[in-house]
């Protein structure tokens, strides 16, 4: 659905050139739900604007829905929906007017636009607002209108730039469900950016981590988590047996970052669940008395920190960690 090679974009600005995206390779299969994760200024929005024909790449090429970005931008536009990070509804227009022009620009008939608009509005919980001015909508209602506009023409591929920012937990869950349903029923391909780690975790088949304009990791949420830092294991043993136990833990395959406390040992292994039986057996063989064991799967936040040396804005990471 998307195939990008060496996509790069440099902005000229007063303070000198800004290399917002530096050579991104992407492959997204039809029906895939891909998440784009990265800290502020990583280049997520710029990549989306490149892929939606709003910006021309400085170098590199890409095809979206089989159409080349440079030679057939209209072909690309016909197939995609785009919901920008900052939205894009006119305050002085009525909701109904926004829906209508959007649908009709995509070639839908007036009746089809009204029908689809009503279905989306009720699905996204903004039914009954058709006659209101956009100016009078709440932030979350406006966000859901943005999303409805991006989906009005039933595109095969939709780009969502931080779609759930500003939505309450219920609306977020509701939107996730809607996205999953669209994918299941119509094979919709979704490419979304997010700061919410739980969102990437819950929604995405595959996560691309971008930092500083380059993709630094890609995989399923679980793959990323197991590949990067591994699970953290903490073992509590009887005092005096700590050095022995630490030795045993350090000899487990892939164990690293072994640290000890008064009667605890902490370390990381690629897979905590498979390392545990072996650890227990070894401790038992050496006659070490085990008091408790805890295994923590790393969160995407850990992944993030390890990969980029930065964490995501705390305010935007509810329920993570």
């Amino acid at each position: 659905m998307i195939e990008a090679r060496g996509l790069a974009r440099t902005f000229r600005s007063r303070g000198g050139p800004v290399e917002a995206v530096r050579g991104v390779d992407l492959d997204v299969a039809p029906g895939e739900l891909v998440g784009f994760l990265g800290p502020n200024g990583a280049g997520k929005t710029t990549t989306l604007r490149l892929l939606t024909t709003l910006l021309r790449p400085t170098t590199g090429r890409a095809t979206v829905g089989g159409c080349d970005l440079l030679t057939d931008p209209v072909g690309v536009r016909r197939q995609i929906g785009y919901v920008a990070q900052g939205g894009g509804t006119a305050y002085e227009c009525r909701v109904r007017e926004e829906i209508e022009i959007q649908g009709r620009f995509y070639g839908l008939s007036k009746a089809d636009t009204v029908r689809r608009g009503a279905a989306l509005a009720s699905r996204l919980d903004i039914a009954g607002l058709e006659h209101r001015l956009v100016r009078t909508l709440s932030g979350g209602q406006r966000r859901r209108l943005d999303i409805a506009l991006g989906l009005i023409h039933a595109p095969a591929l939709v780009f969502l730039d931080e779609p759930t920012t500003g939505l309450d937990p219920q609306s977020r869950a509701n939107l996730w469900e809607h996205i999953r349903a669209l994918r299941a029923e119509h094979g919709l391909t979704v490419f979304l950016t997010t700061h919410y780690l739980d969102e990437a975790d819950a929604l995405c088949d595959r996560v691309l981590v971008i930092d500083n304009g380059t993709i630094v990791a890609t995989g399923t949420p679980d793959e990323l988590k197991s590949r990067i830092s591994g699970d953290s294991v903490s073992v509590e043993v009887a005092p005096g047996t700590v050095p022995d136990a630490a030795g045993i833990a350090g000899r487990l395959p892939g164990a690293h970052e072994v640290t000890t406390g008064e009667n605890t040992i902490r370390f990381r292994v690629p897979r905590g669940d498979t390392a545990l039986p072996e650890l227990l057996r070894a401790l038992h063989t050496h006659g070490i008395d085990l008091r408790s064991v805890q295994v923590h799967r790393p969160s995407l936040n850990d992944v993030f920190l390890t990969l980029t040396g930065r964490t995501l804005r705390d305010a935007e990471v509810p329920g993570a960690a």
């Binding site: 939606t52 024909t53 709003l54 209209v74 536009r77 016909r78 995609i80 785009y82 920008a84 900052g86 939205g87 894009g88 509804t89 006119a90 305050y91 022009i101 959007q102 620009f105 995509y106 070639g107 506009l149």
Partner: peptide, 11 residues
């Protein structure tokens, strides 16, 4: 407000 970008992504 991003209205122009929104309309520019349509065909």
């Amino acid at each position: 407000t991003g209205v122009l970008e929104r309309l520019r992504v349509t065909p």
